[in-house]
Nucleic acid binder design. Sequence first.
DNA 1: GCCGTTTTCGGCCCGACTGTTTTCAGTCG
Length: 574
Amino acid sequence: MADKQELARLFAEIAVLLELKGENPFKIRAYETAARILEELDGDLAEFVASGRVDATKGIGEALALKIREFLATGRLKYYDDMKAAVPPVLFELVKIPGLGPKKALQLHEKLGINSVGELEYACRENRLATLPGFGAKTQERILQGIDYVKRYQGQFLLADVWPLAEKIAAWLEAQPGVDAAAVAGSIRRRKETVKDIDVVVAAAEPEKATALAGALPGVETVLGQGPTKASVKLVTGMNLDIRAVRPEEFAAALHHFTGSKEHHVGLRGLAKDKNLKINEYGLETATGERLAIADETALYRTLGLNYIEPELREGLGEIEAAAGGELPALVAPADIRGVFHMHTTFSDGSATPAEMAAAARERGWGYLGVTDHSRTAVYARGLRLETVDEQRREIERLNAANPGFRIMAGIECDILPDGTLDYPDEVLAGFDFVIASVHSAFRQSEADMTRRIITAMENRYVGVLGHPTGRILLARDGYAVDLAAVIAAAAATGTVIEINASPYRLDLDWRWCRRAKEAGVLLAVDPDAHAPAELDYVAYGVAVARKGWLTAADIVNTRPAAEALALLCRKRN
DNA sequence: GCCGTTTTCGGCCCGACTGTTTTCAGTCG
């Protein structure tokens, strides 16, 4: 079947192939754009072509439309097949190494016959790179470090592993004499679920004195590079940190520049150009080279005729057009959350009692907590047997009686069995205040089976929430094969809430799909899936996902008071 | 490869740093 995701992947890979061939960067961008258009496409590929939308879509011209038609008809792309056959596979591996781009990678393959990362490492140790033009001892050393980096971490880190550290480093920098301000930028500020490095922007009257601090930063292993406005270091944790220093009056522009994304900037600069302005990391310049003062990011956007765009939205996915039209949503904020529904206690695989979890929830200013231990089939997680269900309910009733003003709800995270039935019979499910249904087994079902399985579960009138809808574990396990568009449509049809699992290891539903869910009329819940009191703070990551998904407080169930939120989880029962 | 009330050709976002160079290409973000 001619799948749009498959074609998106082919286009993206063509972009890499073109880069390896040293092709025109704008041609490369055209393929990257086309890949993104297909990824975001509503409906299937056949309909996209049949309806003629393919010819009306900006960014898809004659040549790309032809390739889309070819793929639809034959399931292949000759252009891709030919190019793929002509480019040695090792080049794909080599360009993943920091410091190695297409040009140098090609040289290594052609001149030194490098055919694997292992061979490259060996060649470095034998000192053979230094013989090539454009290469030297330093390059060789850098490549060795890059190989080490890729081998140890694949270059990616969980947001949760770097965000707190990044804030700590920014605070340290800000406290240094001569430093006016320091702030975390880059993909951390945009709250991407995984990030490659840490970017910190610093304001100082003498920027070179700020970058000179690089070697003294807490947690530094080595200084990789250092100039008057920029420094790079490697931290002992294995990740890289870039410091960018500018004068105080340039801070807002620099913060904006280094927050990205690349795609957002490309769009913004095009817009600036239309207004005869130039954006760079120092500010806005007119055609005559006059620099316009930018007090803050809001001023920068306003100068371009746009409303302020929150960092989480700066992904080049329509936010500029929405800002121009005054159509950006008022994003949900952490303070909007009034309680949570998904967490575990010592009754199953949690480490704290319901009383301890409730106390922790109260400390966070919440008014309610939904206790959802695992169901009986989840033996690995000590899922609740029927008699334990009763025991837990009595405990929760006792706690509620003792603590007026705070509501504990007796819920369950019920396994969705491989055939789509639930782990307890309906009469047991009816006894819970609410039910989250999740897949925890038989991950390897076909997409059709998995999709049918999940939709069947959502059709159960007691299922209020679909938990972690794709089952992915970030940097460890892909989600199971499932037709999310169909799941979202079924959630809308049945009135089922979809969970944004706020565990930083999951963050699933992915933010790219949140917007689709919202547009389909689906409500979402931001739930920590906490197994210990401190993990209730995961909610911050879930809110970040919701914000990246353009969601407002109204789109999130648990921004509502207890009774109203609970009623939404039970609206199918009547 | 895309696009167009200045254009169907000639643009397409912009700059810093490194290493190896003796004027700049490559890489990165």
